[in-house]
Design a protein around this nucleic acid. Sequence first.
DNA 1: CCGATTTCTGACCATATGGTCAGGACTATG
DNA 2: CATAGTCCTGACCATATGGTCAGAAATCGG
Lengths: 226, 226
Amino acid sequence: MHVDHSVKKFLKAPCMKSNAAPIRKQNKRRENEVIILKAAEKVFADLGFGGATMQLIADAAGLPKANVHYYFSTKESLYRQVVSNIFDVWLQAADSFEEAAGPADGIGAYIDAKMEISRTHPAGSKVWASEVMHGAPIIQDYLETTLVEWTNSRVTAINAWIEAGLMDPINPRHLLYMIWSTTQHYADFGHQIQTLNNSAPLSDDQWDAAKASVKQIILKGIGVAI
Amino acid sequence: MHVDHSVKKFLKAPCMKSNAAPIRKQNKRRENEVIILKAAEKVFADLGFGGATMQLIADAAGLPKANVHYYFSTKESLYRQVVSNIFDVWLQAADSFEEAAGPADGIGAYIDAKMEISRTHPAGSKVWASEVMHGAPIIQDYLETTLVEWTNSRVTAINAWIEAGLMDPINPRHLLYMIWSTTQHYADFGHQIQTLNNSAPLSDDQWDAAKASVKQIILKGIGVAI
DNA sequence: CCGATTTCTGACCATATGGTCAGGACTATG
DNA sequence: CATAGTCCTGACCATATGGTCAGAAATCGG
């Protein structure tokens, strides 16, 4: 039954992490958590919460399933952590908004930042979308607190720009929805976009063109000169 | 074990369909298929393919699970049928595009139609989004054939409008992506929008405002007078 | 009214899944 | 080297799920 444990260990355990410079013990936990979170993000994005299995996540992380459960006791706690991380990245993109003098800079930079996230964190965007689409069963509290506050703050900022005559008097919420949906579309529906691009991923130039198109149409659409 | 079958039947079977005028046998199959498809659409939208169970779908349809399997042999075949139906609705919205003289009519009507679908078929939109987000494992063939053709056709039409000087020389594909994402956002992220609307569903007036905002920003953004 | 066809269903099965656990292995420190 | 604390893992379990099936019930055609 447990005859050749040493052999198994030799074959499996020690050589798993290729970049394993001997790191302090304290970091081991964080290190493995990051590996698992990254794997989980991808699996959740590909299969959804229900379709994902702890076994698949463990395989993607290169760890035994029981080891994943050692760091994240339940599938839901792991999922919550993944979604929470995405939410943070998501909100950080809004900094560009705050520091801007007017809508051309603020909204333009925000669109750029969100497009960049769609490009670099497509899996995260999909997990977020999936979560919200299913009624946000796990992170409803985030929506009701942080997102509501954040949105109200942006609405105020946009209204100030409108009153200053810097842009057309549009409904700020619908503008935000348009920015969110359009930018995230390049992540969430990336597969469809790729299929429509002769099944090739968007090139760097195509990404630049996408960014430029989105910015141009939206900014012009709200009466902001580019 | 099977003592009171007649009682069960009395309680359960005969009064299930309220509008059950005695319909011909031929229609029974179609009728139940529709009931099941409608239930499945909602369950798939709420829980994703992986999270949905045949039992939940059966419950939502008011039928025993085995009966659902009588009409749809596998979960995947049922899912495929649901997605396929959505795809049809989805494409029909494009008719408005074809019959238009210029971009103001064509794109405006298309946006209206897509917003209306988001409003009336939110579950379907979510199932579609979920399917595409996960790499379209079931309906990739639809994407590669019908959607590609449809898109190319629209791109040609838009380019003709551009060459005729009826709108700005934007990239038609990115315009289509913007229309798709913005309109479908009101279905796919309806829960988020509702949360940001004091947890109340959009009223009729708010839906009208949403439509108007989307149309205004996009049409103005591409240089089309409203 | 009768046989044939379709519809319906409870009971069942093989499998897969989330999660547990006892104990082994490793690492740091004294 | 010894001890303590952390990390790791194979084996296991209770449960849930997709799917099957024999046969009952209803419906239809004549």
